[in-house]
Amino acid sequence: MTSSAFMYLFLAAAVAGGVGMLALRHPIHAAVSLLGTMLCLAAAYAMLGAHLMAVFQVIIYAGAIMVLVVYIIMLLDLGSDDARAFRSVKVFVGIPAATVLVSVLARLAWHRAAGTEPRPGLLSSIGDPAAAALPEGFGTVASIGRDLLGRYVVPFEVTSVLLLAGIVGAVYLTGRDSAGLKAQGNAVGEGKGTGDGGQAEGAPAGGEEFAA
């Protein structure tokens, strides 16, 4: 009883955080409410016994992604006025998405209340009471680890390669100017001469600056 009370508390807080994220004008306030939502969701996972899920929710979403979001908001110094820039996104993406979500949820709730089965389809398993029966050890570190490194090892590794490619690309795109300069500087410092023209796109500019 207490646990379900806590469950409802966390879920209510998560919903409040989501509403807050949408309603608050200041980006950092919105980010903090999103953080609250994620932490509450993690708590809900934990209450459902999915401890690893909860921890990943905190480590990855709250700990890593939200930190980046907050970081960017701070560094760009976004004020409340900058929220207006995203108005068209809200209108053309947000409203349709919200409409779809609300309609699906309403349909499920309708069927649950009426005690009827929803028509089979893409979302059919969501409301399926049979799906609630979980296998033994669901959500533990061992079971998830076994799935991740056994059954789903190929998608898992492919994803990691994708992420690695993303990281390398980001480093190349953001770091090429300074890399070019550094290469020039090192070359002079070590007395090797310059003119390794094909080195990087940014090299000529840096080299001219150095020569002047």
């Binding site: 002079v188 310059t194 003119g195 023209g197 090299a203 000529p204 080299g207 001219e208 020569a211």
Partner: peptide, 9 residues
């Protein structure tokens, strides 16, 4: 031509 060899310092 766009990237002449730079003179050595």
């Amino acid at each position: 031509l766009l990237n002449p060899k730079l003179p050595e310092p």
